[in-house]
Amino acid sequence: MAASFSSSLLDASAISRGEALGIMARKVVEGYIVGEHRSPFRGFAIEFAQHREYTPGDDTRHIDWKVLGRSDRYYIKQYEQDTNFVAQLIVDASESMDYGSGAISKFQFAQNLAACLSYLILMQRDAVALEICSGAARSHFPRTDNLGKFRDLSALLANATASGPTTIGPALQDLAARSRSKGLVFVFSDFFSDEEAVQRGMQHLSFTGQEIVLFHIMDPAEMDFPFRGAHEFIGLEGEETIATSPEDIRKSYLDEVKNFRRRILEICERTDAHYVFVNTAEPLAEVLGAYLAFRHRTTAR
């Protein structure tokens, strides 16, 4: 993996792709934070930011007792995050992620999304680590809070190719085993894998105190199944080729997809993970913006 990484670094086109990815990420992120000037990852960190009124369910540890003594009112202290925040990004690079009915594949979308988030986090001087899972092989970019390393990170992302079966479940378990501090874990995958393994991995991560954000990436064709006429579907991950008439099974297929999404959502609910459904037909900025806005909303209380 290291060899391939080194070689890809020397590859001009790969470098070019990495730069393009980095520039794109910068553009998206900077476009988003104009006027905000505040980290969207605001939470209960070190630097005090503001008070807000206590509402049932808030952690009583954060009640400002001094304000209570002075005003006989319950206020919660909120803080700005500091740089000891570590975001782990796990990108599924299985062959199923290589599917794209439009201009962009799921994997490409995951690459861009991961790059954007990385840049955003580095911009806040928080730390980022990246892992790309491609079958049994994994590419790893170690933790860094140096924005200057973003170029290398984006190059690694850009040069990764989707191959092999989906192994996102075991990857999550490995990450949970390695995690020493609390942080954020971003998972980018279509989750076309063993759902049990995914659940175990997420439970493990959740147990270690990680806040998990799960980007469930699917292609619009996978959701709408718009094909007509006789088709032969060749499995990207070595599954049996299926010959059928899509019109005949569309309803049943859409039910299967709906149930699958429901099951992934249930896994997220059970593991306190945040579920973000990503349709690759939507613009990346919109997806990222929607997520960041949501996060801002939920953590700004």
């Binding site: 062959e95 599917y99 076309f192 006429g229 088709h231 499995g235 049943s252």
Partner: peptide, 16 residues
């Protein structure tokens, strides 16, 4: 038949 490389084969197989 038109051939398509397809990721969500698992749902397809179940439906068929």
């Amino acid at each position: 038949r038109k051939s398509i490389r397809w990721a969500a084969t698992r749902f397809l197989a179940a439906s068929v």
